[in-house]
Design a protein around this nucleic acid. Sequence first.
DNA 1: GAAATCTTCCC
DNA 2: CGGGAAGATTT
Length: 896
Amino acid sequence: MIVNQQNTEYFSMFEKSMSSYPLTPPSSLEDSPQSVLLVASPNSNTFEYETYEHSPMQIPHTFAVQPNIMIDPNSLIKTETRPSLRFIEQPTDRFRFRYKSEMAGTHGSLTGINSDKSRKPTYPTVELKNFSGRVIVRCSIYQSNADGKDFLPHAHRLIMKKGKEEHDDPHDIIIGPEDGYRAVFQGMGIIHTAKKNIVSELTRKKLQLRREFVARKEGELRELSTKEQVEIKGLAESESKSINLNIVCLRFDAFIKDNGILYPICDPIYSHGINNLKSALTGDLKIVRLDHVVSPAKGKKEVFILVERVTKKNIKIRFYELDDEDRVVWQDWGQFNDLDVHHQYAIVFKTPKYRDENITSPVRVFVELFRPSDGARSEPRDFRYIPNKPIFKAGQKRPRYDYGSSSYSSSNPGSEELPVPIDNLQLEQSPIFSEMSPLSVPSGLSEEIKRAMNNINSDEFRRIFDAHMDEYVSVCETTDAPKVAENMQLITRRKTEALLAQAEKSEGIKMEVTDQERRMAIKVVEELRSFYRTTHTPQLAIRILNHYFLEDKRTNALHIAICQRDNQSALLLLKIMVTYRQFELIKKSNNEQQTPLHLAVLCFNGPMVNSLLMCRARISALDSDLNTPLHLAINSNAPIEILEMLLIKRECENVKDFIDLENEQGNTALLLAIEKKKLAAIKLLCKEGADINKIHPKNGFVPLRFAIEKQHTDIVKFLLTLNSIDATIKDFQNVSPWAAAFSKDANEEITKAVQKFMADNSIPFEVKEEPEDDSEDEMEIDEEFEVKKELPHLTPDELETMYKKVDTLTPQCLDEVSDILDKSENWKCLAELLEIEHLIDSEIIKSDISMSKAVLTYSIETNRDSIWMIRNFLENLDEFKAVEIMDRMVQELQKC
DNA sequence: GAAATCTTCCC
DNA sequence: CGGGAAGATTT
């Protein structure tokens, strides 16, 4: 172990002057496995540490600006008794360096890394250990450096305001036992030294340090010789070329003063790097906006993104995927060159290809900006990879392969199966098929189908099937092939006529089909009919169903029947598919990836939508624009009944699994409803649990923000009545919905509604234009509503248990709820739902208490469980405000 | 001469 | 304060 001569000298000096605090002699370090060398740096002329072997740097996965390069000497030295400094609070790692010309006003000072805006700020703080007596702790500004050694003073200035005066570093604080040996450095700022002043500033600092060094060495202060000055100037000049102006660190020393000269009593410590927030080299990276958030798995999708200032040579776009445990399982880079970076604020790039080009359903990944120079990353944004568009060979009259087979019934849903040769078709092993015997008489067929039906565990289906059985049999009984065709055409024509009449009222009722398609559909139905007459086997049925589809458009008979609104034929097909349990055939999509359900929705064909849903058609099915039938229902202005049908709870599919799906544009059904200004649809979706705070992947807008942007006043108002609405979620540009509501071009009514909401929910105003209200009043309101904001998000189950513990309404709650019901007159409906309509006619009506109150109290008195029931009935009646009041009451009761 | 970067200025 | 941008300087 090598110890510099001078150090020994100093240590012995301390021992002399502070004999009561024996300092560990340097020799005791010799056996330390992690050695520390105390050496005089030739450049800075101060003591610097060289460290050998230190624990590897840890770079956290999340948003690393600058790795913490601080080496804490305490961790390296074994001694318990030697004085040492350690950090109580590191400085913040991001700070705006200001030029001297900017220092006129008062700007923020350097806070601690853990400083929180809402609380008292913290400041960089260090503590001296193993020492008693008074001591000087010094803070000065140094160049941050990655390898944690050879620290040099920085050309920037670390200033501290004392009253009016500004002091340059170093800043010395005298501390002692009364401070707990802690030095807090409050009110410091960093002045960005202009380029032209760097050399002079650096020289000034070096001269000062050299003077102190010389004084220590020689035991007295003296001016430096010209030779020394010239030497230092030279050093400053060469150093100024390599200095990084956008990152600094703080150095802390502990000294004792003897005869006007400072002697260090321990090793200095250095903070982690402090990055200049204003610089493109170290400032925050951010993706502000994306024009696409979806790419096919093969990549090469062109995407425009807007970003905060970047430097074109020092920026990358990283795509990555995390597994369930947040481990990175894939990453790749967006492709672009210098020319694709527009003025530091926009980048046009192409997506990389996904690790698996053959994915069959969308995959969620992330995009982020990455800055190679310091490893900094932006906040990640959501991005999705979707299956490549399938390539279909056109021009073949007859496909060699048919789609759909037994593989449908066994394999995972959502994946597009490979074509299977017709001859290899195998049937699933199902009791239906083994029990089936060939039948020659159509009337017997219904019996068989009925038997098969018993194996399908769905009452709903049986209902629909039975309802249409006659129709089914009649088609089957028609023996004459030409007659069937004729019949079909007749049906189609009649339908067409009827539909044309309706089509004038609303759009999208019927979709175009080609003659070829129509012919094909007719043929399928025809063959199915004749097949039933003769060689009745399930194999053949499936074969027929599979056999015909048009290669270029990939339409099958079911699609065509639905497009033509020929429900009769469509039902026949459906029934056969269900009878043979070919549920996957019902979900088969055409070349725009539209399933029969998509088509039925687009045609506003309510009965067909209903039938398809009963046959387990999936609402989470995505068309080529990633629209679900739900999206289409809203976008095509389908009648609300269709939307309602789609949201009916079913055993085979959970509403939650599709209600919040984003289409290719990143829109959820709720967002489309807002765009289309469909309040009824919005209410319905919200009631069914659509996520009202879901942020848009392109710009971070929440639904409320879209409503404000679109100036849809009643929608804004409605959204604000919802319990779980969060009006504070900021978009990618740090604008919250409420801030948008106060912008110049927002309409007055919206501004007022939002203002009221914010007052009610004690959200602080930060808008200048806000007219000043009576602040005292506001305080009262604030307190009142503080409890309100704390309403935790509960699952229905949790809510129910809470309700079950309560057997009466508080008088206040009763009043408020009654008031609401009196106004809306919904108490009548409530009474009906509670099955106490008789009350209405009874004598209570003559008393002067409100009917709502009467209904509520009666119900509660007669039935303990009724509060929970009432709540849910109210919810069904769209009395959200009343529900909210009740929820709050119940939750407050629990707290007591 | 245009773009990038630095510095000052302003709200 | 943080954000934006104009003006100045460098590349």
